[in-house]
Design a protein around this nucleic acid. Structure first.
Lengths: 118, 118
DNA sequence: CCAATTGTTCAATAACTTTTGAACTAAGGA
DNA sequence: TCCTTAGTTCAAAAGTTATTGAACAATTGG
């Protein structure tokens, strides 16, 4: 019931960079960073692709050690592994996120903010 | 006689990350960083692969905007585009290089330091 | 001019990555 | 229990990337 994650010292620089070298995954990371602290479930990202495709990209991010996925009922709550990444590769995540925030070519998540109903 | 390079505003974050997401190319960048200021020709990197394969990887780095290649006689002198990368993605190159320096899994360049003969 | 040096290009192949749809599992609510 | 919601797995197809060797081009030095 818990999903496999690398532990901190198993996180590899080339693998992390390779995984981040994809617009869909960079958009996921950017969105996670913009909602840091809030755990988000997978369907939050459906703007970026089909359910199956997101399952694939989210697995890549998790297996690389970029995100953590917690199983909560039928949901998987996704968070950035910021502390681990900062410890392993100081400054890397911050600079990637800062650059991603400014990148108009990346696809966007959101629009249909279902919260705050009335 | 001059090779094609993207100009600074054409350098793309996902492409740069993708290109750096390869151990051979990361090793090239790490070595360039360790010799910053010194322009190096391609054969400096032959420890990392065949001539043909290096030509491929060096072209990837150049086309992504990570390196600059100047034609000098029959040599191509390779340098990191540090100023451009720092301006476009502040902190990114520094954090990647710092992490690469500490990565024992990356292949190494050097050993046969031909300089300083006697 | 000839030969050596430096690096590129080309075509082939091998190996990986991305995307898709259909089928599936697992939990939760009516 | 049955239905819905959330997400995974699998296999196939499509696309991309990495690696190789042989052939090529350009410059330099003898």
């Amino acid at each position: 019931m818990t999903l496999p994650h690398p532990n901190m010292d198993q996180i590899s620089l080339p693998i992390v960079l390779g995984v981040l070298g994809d617009p869909t995954r960079l958009a996921i990371v950017r969105y996670l960073a913009s909602k840091e602290g809030v755990p988000l479930n997978c369907s939050r990202f459906l703007d970026l692709g089909s359910k199956t495709n997101l399952s694939y990209h989210l697995a890549k991010l998790r297996e690389a050690g970029v995100t953590r996925a917690e199983v909560v009922g039928t949901n998987r709550m996704i968070t950035l592994r910021r502390a681990d990444l900062d410890a392993r590769f100081p400054g890397l995540l911050d600079s990637v996120i800062a650059a991603a925030v400014d990148d108009p070519a990346l696809p966007a998540v959101g629009g249909h903010d279902l919260e705050v109903p009335a």
